[in-house]
Amino acid sequence: MEPTNWMGLAAVLITTIGSVAGMWGGRTRTTVQDVPVDAPSSTPAQVEGAWTVSPEMYKWVIEFAQRESNTRAERLEFLLGLALVHIDRQEGELKAAGLPSVPMDPELVAARDSR
C-alpha cells in the first residue's frame, strides 16, 4: 500500500478510538439521580462541596417551571386558535371567489370545528 493509504487508515483509526474513549469517559462521569415526581418537597442528593438547596426553594423552582410550562401551553393554544381562524377565513374567501379549496387534514378540520 502507498503511504497515503496508511495515513488515511491511521487517521480514521485514531479518531474512532478517540470518539469511543470520549464517549466512555463521559458516560462514566455522568450519574443519573432519580428525582421524585410525586414528592416535590424532597430534594435530590447534593454533591459534596456544592451549595445546598432547601426543600422550600426546590419546591418553588418546580412550581415556577410548571407555571412557565402552563403559560407556554396556553400561548401555543391561543396561537393555534388564531391560525385556525385565519385558515377558516381564507377558505371562506376562496369559496366566495369560486376557487376550489384544498382539502385540509382531518385533524385540522376536527380542531377547527370543535371551537
Rank of each mutant, 00 (worst) to 15 (best):
A50V: 02
T15Q: 02
A21N: 00
T15K: 00
W51N: 15
T28P: 00
G26L: 04
W51F: 08
M7E: 11
A11E: 02
G49K: 02
R27H: 14
A21E: 00
W6C: 05
V53Q: 01
I17F: 09
R29E: 11
S54L: 06
W6K: 05
A39Q: 14
A65M: 12
T30D: 01
S54A: 09
T28Q: 12
T43R: 07
T43C: 07
A45K: 15
S41T: 12
T16S: 12
A45F: 11
T28I: 14
S41A: 12
L9N: 09
A21V: 10
V12F: 10
T15H: 01
R67H: 06
T52F: 05
T16Q: 03
G26F: 13
R29G: 13
I14W: 13
E63W: 01
V47I: 11
W6A: 09
R27T: 12
D34C: 01
E56S: 06
V20Q: 06
V61F: 08
G8F: 11
L9V: 04
A45I: 13
A50E: 07
P44Y: 13
L13R: 08
P55Y: 04
A10W: 03
T15N: 00
L9F: 10
R29N: 11
W51A: 15
L13C: 12
M7W: 06
A39E: 15
I62A: 03
V47T: 10
R67F: 11
K59A: 10
W60C: 06
Q33Y: 05
A39S: 12
T52P: 01
W60H: 10
S54F: 02
L13N: 05
G8V: 05
Y58M: 06
D34H: 13
Q33K: 07
A10V: 03
A10E: 01
P40L: 02
A45P: 04
W6H: 09
S54K: 03
P44A: 04
R29W: 15
